[in-house]
Design a protein around this nucleic acid. Sequence first.
DNA 1: GCACTTTCTGCATATTTATACAATTTTTTT
DNA 2: AAAAAAATTGTATAAATATGCAGAAAGTGC
Lengths: 166, 166
Amino acid sequence: MQKVLRLLTIEKLIAGEKISSQEILLKKLRGAGIKCTQATLSRDLRQLGVSRIPDGEGSYMYSLTGTGRSQHERGSTVNMLSVVSEIVEAKGLMVIRTIPGHANATAYFIDNSRRYEIAGTIAGDDTILVIPRNGISLKQVHTCLELIIPGLHNQIRNGSPETRAV
Amino acid sequence: MQKVLRLLTIEKLIAGEKISSQEILLKKLRGAGIKCTQATLSRDLRQLGVSRIPDGEGSYMYSLTGTGRSQHERGSTVNMLSVVSEIVEAKGLMVIRTIPGHANATAYFIDNSRRYEIAGTIAGDDTILVIPRNGISLKQVHTCLELIIPGLHNQIRNGSPETRAV
DNA sequence: GCACTTTCTGCATATTTATACAATTTTTTT
DNA sequence: AAAAAAATTGTATAAATATGCAGAAAGTGC
């Protein structure tokens, strides 16, 4: 339980500010009342799919844009739920909005479900484009997403639950 | 001039296969007739915006998905072939799946071909959306992609309804 | 409760990556 | 072409990150 909180806090911290090393992240965590060692952090970051990327200004920063496959394992759907803010249909496609910086992790989570209905997803910073396969209605995709992230529909206020095929 | 060649080769190598450390990259480079030290590589990777990301299987790999989009030319098609895992048609669009972290490099390659048939591409982490021009059929796009990346069709089990993700 | 299994974590350390500095090469200016 | 300035590189090393291992904690079933 302590671990889940730590992972969430790490994500939040990384999404919120430039953090250039695990040592610094360690201090921020400590400031948030969470204490662990650099070794644990290294493992957490791998699990979250977080990577250290050049920030374009001669230094480095951590980023969530990696391949966070582990999101898929074990009940982190709660986690997913909390970052999705809106679902919109457009042009036979589905657009999912998340809180900033979380599109990739969420998209990867969806990809990883390997549902037939979904041809693929593309994620930016806070937007995911879900591309259904031919012959799949948006309603089917909705159902499918609900399977992947249970509780999704209830979570969303602004989405359009009544969908129709294209 | 030696450096430019080295940067290009690094991009090509990283786009084409999983490389997990600078030491390994160093050896590959040496195999390609380019010789330098790890220190130089570290600097090159920063300049290219390359980052080391968790590969989702407990290890790490280098990826071009970082900030620094270096405008260099095309990778080798051989390498491109090895990262594409699936092609699916959907909603009049084409979705190409790659191994994680390689969508950008592949998309860039496709963009660079400047084929008329393709209006543009959008790439996430492991998914590329290929948008055909108006009036262009998916079959034409297929042919076009085959021209850009010869051997593509043979490589891929196309997204027919019976296809399963691997 | 207890035994058993699995997951998690810190410690110490190995591995990997980044950088200060000096030397060299390339480019620019005169 | 020489001088000056800027960029590139290797060496050695610092800094940062990953991991084997053993113990701790958390979960499972009885």
